[in-house]
């Protein structure tokens, strides 16, 4: 898994914005992650504690907001959410579906002290 590179990017972005805002400390970091982004929260949190040491983000709390994956059927326009497994359209059975959302992978906001 690529959680380490991802965690490094989170740290880089958060520190950049914290410095710009002249923060003395970052207390919270809010991430928004779509259902289709294959990221394991626990391992991000694990790496986070290690790599955030001695930075403005040391001891900052990570918050993960998960968004569902929305699909649409290209044949009947039925919209539905991805459950566990990839499935044909539950309305008409067509395999022609398109993913509308679920790829989100954003750092949404940080909370700082100064």
């Amino acid at each position: 898994m690529h959680e380490l590179s991802v965690t490094e990017s989170v740290l880089e972005i958060a520190c950049k914005h914290a410095e710009q805002a002249q923060a003395t400390r970052v207390t919270d970091i809010h991430l928004v992650i779509g259902r289709l982004s294959s990221i394991v929260d626990d391992s991000v949190a694990f790496y986070w504690d290690i790599i955030s040491k001695d930075t403005l983000c040391e001891n900052a709390q990570l918050h993960f907001k998960r968004l569902p994956a929305e699909l649409i059927c290209l044949d009947c326009d039925h919209q539905y959410q991805l459950e566990d497994d990839l499935m044909p359209c539950p309305n008409c059975g067509s395999p022609r579906i398109r993913v509308l959302s679920g790829d989100e992978f954003n750092l949404e906001s940080i909370e700082i002290q100064r």
Partner: peptide
């Protein structure tokens, strides 16, 4: 000391992209 929330909304892999 003040506390503040800063909205960022940046793609985490933006630097790579």
């Amino acid at each position: 000391m003040t506390e503040k929330r800063i909205t960022i909304v940046e793609k985490i892999l933006d630097a790579n992209d």
